[in-house]
């Protein structure tokens, strides 16, 4: 539905040139909840602004339903945006804000009023239609911004870190609210965030970006379980990295011992990084891929405990339920071969 091919954008020139987007290609499907995830400055907002039409690419093309829209101004694209700071019109009330897009499209008053009422009901703000914007709480303003962008029934809804200004509880609430709205309206959502948890819980697919490039596109599970690059693994969730070299015997030699791996390995002698999530490391168990160490630190966090195990050459963290281990006591950990990811840099 949205086909983005080889987009490149450089801001500034000469010494100060900054590549915001570096040859980015991605296709977003209809009715998809698609998330652009990355640290600030990775180019995700630039890409979003390009889809909206606020930014022109240096090279590359954007197609919407097969039609090229790269050079179409924002007010000619059937795409609406929920801005990070909401950008609500302070001189209009809630209903006027929500009806603005429809009014600009030249719909008649009756239709506008009906759609505004329906949309406000959708975001559960129908009781506040006559309020001024400065009389609303942050969460309510967020819903107005959402309603304003949804009211003209766009083909694509762009959301630029819309939840970052909300407190934790409200954010959780809005996450499920957004998901519900996306399912109810059937509109394609393109969501920008730097919060990996937000991305994992809401998205159909995620594109992880860094330094203007897309490093990996995939379902949340794929991104979490099979990260394609060290950056992706590190950015999403907690993870342990173990440096090693591939041996002739098909194992990886690390400073703490040889490890067997089920994933395919490159040629022997290659330097690789093994990655494993803390919750996949098993404490105490003996067996293949078991490494001896000492328990350096125990951190209790309510629903579990994190054990920091010193393996001599490296330190590994292991997440477990109950932990009857004493700090400073010897403790072995087992790294299941099927859980070890092989990353090449």
């Amino acid at each position: 539905m949205i086909e983005i091919s080889t987009l490149t954008k450089v801001f500034g020139s000469g010494q100060e040139a900054m590549t915001a987007l570096d040859n980015v290609s991605v296709t977003i499907a209809e009715n998809e909840f698609f998330t652009l995830l990355g640290p600030s400055g990775c180019g995700k907002t630039t890409l979003l602004r390009m889809i909206a039409g606020f930014e022109l690419p240096d090279t590359g093309e954007i197609r919407l339903d097969g039609q090229p829209v790269t050079h179409l101004p924002p007010h000619h694209r059937p795409i609406n945006t929920v801005f990070q700071n909401y950008a609500l019109f302070p001189h209009m009330n809630v209903a006027q804000n929500v009806g603005f897009g429809l009014e600009m499209l030249g719909r008649d008053r009756k239709e506008i009023d009906a759609t505004v009422a329906r949309t406000l009901e959708l975001v559960r703000l129908d009781h506040l239609a006559g309020r001024r914007i400065d009389q609303l709480s942050g969460g309510q303003q967020q819903r107005v911004a959402l309603a304003r962008a949804l009211a003209p029934a766009p083909k694509v809804l762009l959301l630029d870190e819309p939840l970052s200004a909300l407190d934790f509880k409200l954010r959780k609430e809005m996450q499920s609210e957004l998901k519900r709205l996306q399912l109810e309206t059937g509109i394609t959502f393109v969501f920008v965030t730097h919060d990996q948890e937000e991305a994992l819980t809401m998205s159909d697919r995620i594109a992880v970006m860094s330094a203007g490039k897309i490093l990996q596109i995939g379902r949340p599970m794929d991104i979490y379980d099979r990260p394609a690059a060290r950056f992706v693994a590190d950015f999403i969730g907690d993870i342990n990295f173990i440096e090693g070299t591939v041996t002739d015997g098909g194992t990886v030699a690390t400073g703490s011992g040889d490890l067997a791996v089920t994933a395919p390995l490159p040629a022997s002698g290659t330097t690789v990084t093994l990655a494993i999530r803390p919750e996949h490391v098993m404490p105490g168990a003996e067996g293949p891929n078991s490494l001896a160490g000492t328990l350096a630190e125990r951190v209790y966090f309510g629903s579990g405990t994190v054990l920091e195990v010193d393996l001599g050459a490296t330190r590994i963290s292991c997440r477990t339920g109950d932990a009857p281990f004493a700090e400073g006591a010897p403790l072995s950990v087992t790294l299941p071969p099927e859980r070890l990811q092989v990353l090449q840099d």
């Binding site: 909206a52 606020f54 007010h75 600009m104």
Partner: peptide, 14 residues
């Protein structure tokens, strides 16, 4: 706030 101008453009205002 020129982001309001952007928002208006986004909502089909010429």
């Amino acid at each position: 706030d020129f982001r309001l101008v952007e928002a208006a453009h986004d909502l089909y205002a010429g």
